[in-house]
Structure formats: C-alpha cells, structure tokens
Amino acid sequence: MDKNISFTLKVWRQRGPKAKGAFETYQMKDIPGDTSFLEMLDILNEQLVNENKEPIVFDHDCREGICGMCSLYVNGHPHGPATGATTCQLYMRRFKDGDTITVEPWRSAGFPVIRDLMVDRTAFDKIQQAGGYVSINTGGMPDANAIPIGKDVAEEAMDAAACIGCGACVAACKNGSAMLFVSAKVSQFALLPQGKVEAKKRVKAMVAKMDELGFGNCTNTRACEAECPKCVSISNIARLNREFIKAKMKD
C-alpha cells in the first residue's frame, strides 16, 4: 500500500492575462500516494473553498491522459517528472515526504495565461484550421479497403496521430516552438495516400500559420520529444522540414 506524504506546494496564481502573477505556498498534509496529481489539487481546492477562498483554476477533463486538456509545469517538467504520461496520470507516490513541488502554467507567448494555471491554447486550433485536414465533404467515399496501406506506414501514421494537442512541446521548448505538434499532424497526413494529395498546400499553410502566431524556431534541442506525454518522435519534425522544403522548391 502507498504511504501518505506531506509536502509544500508552490502554485502560480494569476488573475488574468495582463495581471501580475506570483507564487502562493500551501502546506499539504497526509496525501495518499495513490492520489493523482489533479486529485491532490482537488483536495487543495476543497480546502480553499472551505476557507471561502477562490480555488486554483487549472484545465482538466478526461483524467485518462487522452483529451490533452490538462497541462501544468511541475518541478521543471511539463506534465511533471513522469515520462510518457500527462499530469492527470501522475500519481503522488512519485514524490517524497517533505518535497517542495512547484506548479507553473505553460509559459509561452503563444499560450497566454487565462487564470492561474489555465492557458489559452486556441493557437493550436488555428494552426489545424489552416490546413490540418483532408479537403473532403461527407459521403461518397471509396471503399475503405480500396487503397491498401502498408502496416508499417499505418503504424507510423498512428504514432504521429497519437498527439493529444496538449502543448507540452511548446511548454518544454526554450524557443517556444510548436514544431513537434505541427509536424505530428503534417506527418500523419503526409504518410497516408489520402492525405498526400494536398500535402504541399497543407504543410505551407500550417507552417505559415504557426509562424504568424508567434511560435519560435526549432533548434532541435529535442526537449519536446523528451517531455511529450505521447512520446511523439522528432523524426516527424524532419519529415515536416522535408515536406516543406520540397513544397517550396516546387514553387
């Protein structure tokens, strides 16, 4: 059975995008090790409400590691110190009694803070809206088995498609670059025959939108890949570069 732990929690509190934020410190007592990190914040929020204080605002939804809504920069890592997991899948047994745990929002010009630990990630939607799709309407599609697709290609596309759009890559990158996110989407479409048709148009549109929204330039530090909760590979970034250069050369 997991032990209970007590620790100090430093949480970033900020009223709004323009407001000045600061850390607030909370003492957490006897938290069971099988509590998830977000459940630990629930416990804290319950305490705050009981003291008639406003609870800490953070994004979360599915709590199964798939919706990509939870964020949090915990002790210097997006989604905390665990690898291949989101914050909602982080359990308190990973921490030790007496630890100080620092919780910050994603910090990037592309993701302005809304309140406390909640940030605005609509930039990701905008990038996808610029070209992250196959331009087809509903209905009248050829049979699903009409075009065979190699198992290895399908698997590689799936690896890229596993991206949950949480923004940890941007949060981890010292350049605030969104290349891992964009490249995962570009790769999924570029690998599959149905997406290849408009691959050139897509990659140009998505990169242009990404640049326009003020994300940084990739310098291949690989921090994104290391912190990605879905272990999306930077080989996707190489593919994005390749697709982009090819597309521009053709112009």
Binding site: G21, F23, N75, P81, E104
Partner: peptide, 16 residues
C-alpha cells in the same frame, strides 16, 4: 525565439 518564449520565465527548469 526569446520573444516566442514569453516574458515570464519558469521558476524551476530541469533539463530532460
């Protein structure tokens, strides 16, 4: 890149 990173820096950073 510094601009893209935003004006507010992380208090704790740990290199993966």
């Amino acid at each position: 890149n510094r601009k893209a990173r935003g004006s507010q820096r992380y208090a704790v950073v740990e290199k993966p």
